[in-house]
Design a protein around this nucleic acid. Sequence first.
RNA 1: GCGAGCGUGGCGGAACUGGUAUACGCACUAGGCUUAGAACCUAGCGCCGCAAGGAUUGAGGGUUCGACUCCCUCCGCUCGCACCA
Length: 840
Amino acid sequence: MSYPFKEIEPKWQDKWDEAQAFSAKNQDSEKKYYVLDMFPYPSGAGLHVGHVEGYTASDIIARAKRAQGYNVLHPMGWDAFGLPAERAAVREGRHPEEITKENVSNFKQQLRSLGFSYDWEREFSTTDPEYYRWTQWIFLKLYEKGLAYQADVPVNWCPALGTVLANEEVQDGKYVETGDPVERRNMKQWMLKITAYADRLLDDLELLDWPAGVIEMQRAWIGKSRGAEVDFAIADSETKFTVFTTRPDTLFGATYCVLAPEHPLVTQITSSEQQSAVQDYVQWAKNRSDMDRQLAAEKEKTGVFTGAYALNPVNGQKIPVWVADYVLMTYGTGAIMAVPAHDERDHAFAKKFNLPIVQVISSEKEIDIQESAYSGDGKLMNSDSFNGLSVAEGKAKVIAALEVNGCGKGKEQFKLRDWLFSRQRYWGEPFPILKDANGQVYPLSEEDLPVSLPFVEEYKPTADGQPPLARNQEWVQVTRDGKNFERETNTMPQWAGSCWYYLRFMDPKNNQAPFSKEAENLWGPVDLYIGGVEHAVLHLLYSRFWHKVLYDCGLVHTKEPFQKLFNQGMILAYSYRDKNGKYHHPDDVKEESPGKWVVTKTGDSVVTQVEKMSKSKLNVVNPNDVVAQYGADSLRVYEMFMGPLDRDKPWAQNGLVGVFKFLSKLWRLVNDDKGQSLLDDSEPTEEQLKVLHQTIKKVTTDINNLSFNTAISQMMIFVNEMSKTKTRPKSLIRSFVQVLAPFAPHIAEEIWSQAGGKGLVCLAKWPEHDESYSKADSVTLAIQVMGKTKAKLDFDADADEETVLTAAKEVGFVKNQLAEGKSIRKVIFVKNRILNLIIN
RNA sequence: GCGAGCGUGGCGGAACUGGUAUACGCACUAGGCUUAGAACCUAGCGCCGCAAGGAUUGAGGGUUCGACUCCCUCCGCUCGCACCA
């Protein structure tokens, strides 16, 4: 039997609104809690069950913390700038703002229907001028601090589209969507100097309560390594170049050097005989994208000799200089010393081009250095005065020697690169920047903000390849003090708006500052941040970077923005595919016999597997459908019941039905078929109190550990146990729905009010469990022999060893063993748990 | 290749700091209710075995009175990174 969720759910959603039940107060309180969802991009496709998972988890925490007396900040907003809306605008000939507004209103309606306890008074979108005004303001701070600059950098330029593409949009030199060719081109772009914060971004990871995997990914992305820069002079010339190496101890084993194809010295040092070969190679390498280079990494090494020789600074040896694209211009100095004996890549290259391989680190094992590189530890050899040193000592001593001779120094290197911060697009934050005729840059002042997005005829680049904003020349041309300027026509990337939104939520209406000091002091940092792993690196790194800059400006009081991070797992789904590879909708298939699925209509067999939800696989579950059929409470509870929050889990419609039955059973516990209340004013029985207090205890601790699946299982036990008893004491039911409320808030409110609860259950003080009830008065002990359980016996709680031992001796197995003349050698007794007999 | 995580019934999963393996849910079986079905209720339900009993948490080994839990080796799956010198 069903319960009337269709009436209950909208009713309580309205009551929460009327009561402003979830409004966070910007006033000092003893305890605050800031629980934040990674705010969504409001796509046209609407809310996904994957969103619902994270949002339900954060909502449970928010509701529980509120009931536990915390001042809770739980906001929601929209990360609404970005490419999809702009593409839709081009396609449909509408303004992206209009499309965004529609999508936002759809998203919001969907979120509301799920009963999330957001403080909607604090809602904003990154596209609101009153928000991006302050994004621009923060950009000016970055500019003032010298952290924003323009540079010529290679980008993926697509002539057909007239825009720059992200690396992931390019494959095999083509735009993945249309197949239009893409070329690498140097363009003047805005960059943010995130590398200036590399050390702090790395070191402060230690302050965070984050999943180890995310910390590790950030650490790898920053990629700090220690080594040395070594200068190599070109033989018979004044020219020299610098290499970076992490193995200065192997300097005597350097048998050649390699420059990246883009290295500025390549043309200069190439000998006339090698001129054309080198030019051809450089040209060929230039048009290979990063992706191609990566694929090529698994294949053959390529390269060309420049004809030039370099001098090894420690022994004056003449070694050839090559050009090869296995050396990247973007890392280190774009040049390396190659030590084939102790580096796999150099070894492969040396083998291919017959370059010498000289071992300079000894190995304890017998190895053939001509066959494979040795990168392990050992003692230096073939290295003059450094022979016999360990690798670690060798590194230090060689660096010291280089520094004395002025031809090298110790150096720390990072993989992290500066952040390419401009896009040739319309739907993003305009830069608060003017340029004069000479290209000189002038930042606007605070009073000029916001620089609003102008009207344009079309959201496409101009005919001569300028960004869309250049279509509105009235906006672009600015006269100040009689001088003519042009506005910057690039816009900021989508990341910009999401870098600091958690701060704006603290003080969203402020029109004097991005947020007040008081608000930031009250709410910062975010106590719990929930979202998907897909943001493990970029969003979280960029946000941390901006936060640290704001910290240096004295605008925030914590070093880090997000104290605790939690990544929910992905919700997967079964898909059904026939032998032709065609997918079938789950409604169109049935399980004919265990494990064997067929198409219902035709009887054709299909294979089933668990995959990511996607339209093409016909396995997408739409939250709207679930809410219509089973209600928001069922959806919320099911998603939390599926399994541990951080794991990937497959959607199972039957599981959802099981949860729906649980809520229906609860409903029938207090309402009969005719809708008459079964609640009474009786005193709860001992039995009832016991299961209630066990439930309060378990649910409370499980919520703190984000173990929602086990909390729900305990609440199921409560309902099962209650249905075996005769009375329905109101006070007991009230306490139960209080702990249920964070999970299934609508049905909890309804039953709370039926049971005579005062006000809203979501605002009622969280119940405390009474230990005297939650403790069992009889226990089952396992009687083990040699650690194997032979019997289970019931005893009074805290029964002593003697009592248990006496009973154990009467157990058949034990009795037989003793009768056979065996004796008890040792007794291990753990109160209320086990009695283990060691018999010989 | 490197790094991280995971592996428990037919399925999703539970098991606190080493102490009753399989809680809770699904599926399934039998019975009740019903003209019938749905829904609901009751009981059963990991494996082998008629039973006594035995083996069992990916495989193998170790520590321990006792291991899903700790250690070692291996296998499988998932994710991230990848010519970063």
